[in-house]
Amino acid sequence: MTELFVILIATVLVNNFVLVRFLGLCPFMGVSRNLEAAAGMSLATGFVLTLSSATAYLLHEYVLVPLELEYLRTITFILVIAASVQFTEIMVRRVSPLLDQVLGIYIPLIATNCAVLGVALLNVQQSTGFVQSVFYGLGAAGGFALVLVMFAAIRERLDAADIPAPFRGTAIALMTAGIMSLAFIGFSGMARL
């Protein structure tokens, strides 16, 4: 139990995939213009992250390792991720047409989100069991959601702020991301995986 909690803390805060490992920066910049889209995007990405890190672990442990095909890890995981993204798209369309309208074009982009592949790869390198790897994916999803929603909220505030002309738009967004990243460095050393 404690171990699972440590995994969660480690992935959400200490080794946050976006702000500390710098994975998945494209949705972080691209889908953070407004809070609703950001929240939906983090839900969808979280679903894919958890699903794909679990399936990736199972495939790695019970198919690739017994057949001594570990070198096929990356391509297999890409396959798994593409399939789970497609599955998520079908699910979202069936379950919530409204969310589908908001996220429609962003969902296929999850497939190219490097955080998803990164989490799957890092996961099989260090995780020790199925439950742990599910929590690893869950934590990564939580961390991604946390920073994406926070960043979107800040950017919504920034829209109303009086920003000097040269800094408007992407420039101030990048600076904000940098400052947030600095803040998250403050967690380093709190938990170790």
């Binding site: 495939l59 198919v63 690739l64 057949l67 095909l69 096929l72 391509i75 297999t76 396959l79 798994v80 593409a82 399939a83």
Partner: peptide, 10 residues
């Protein structure tokens, strides 16, 4: 192996 995994996913 890859083909089978792809087939199952499909």
């Amino acid at each position: 192996t890859i083909a089978v995994i792809a087939l199952i996913a499909g």
